[in-house]
Amino acid sequence: MSHSKDLQEYWRRNLRYVVILLAIWFSVSYGAGILLADTLDNIKLGGFPLGFWFANQGSEVIFVLLIVVYVKLMNNLDQEFDVHEK
């Protein structure tokens, strides 16, 4: 069973992952899809104005990827600190 210092480190790493992933979550939706959408719309992605694309497609796809990355990171972290379920 893990040492209490290790447990604190595990929790810190977890929080760091969450903060980074939620920063991306915020940037693609509220940032690119809303606050900067007008500016980004001047750039075209095929037939999509970029801001419109982030709001309609990009955010949703990136959200799914964020959860996939989170799941991978956390499962590895659990193993590394030996706190995974048996």
């Binding site: 939706s29 955010s59 959860i67």
Partner: peptide
């Protein structure tokens, strides 16, 4: 039009919060 995307983002983005802050 583009305003409608608030439903798309709003009704999917909550799952990121659920996955990282609540579910486990």
């Amino acid at each position: 039009g583009r305003d409608g995307a608030m439903y798309l983002m709003g009704w999917t983005g909550g799952y990121v919060l659920l996955a990282m802050l609540l579910a486990p």
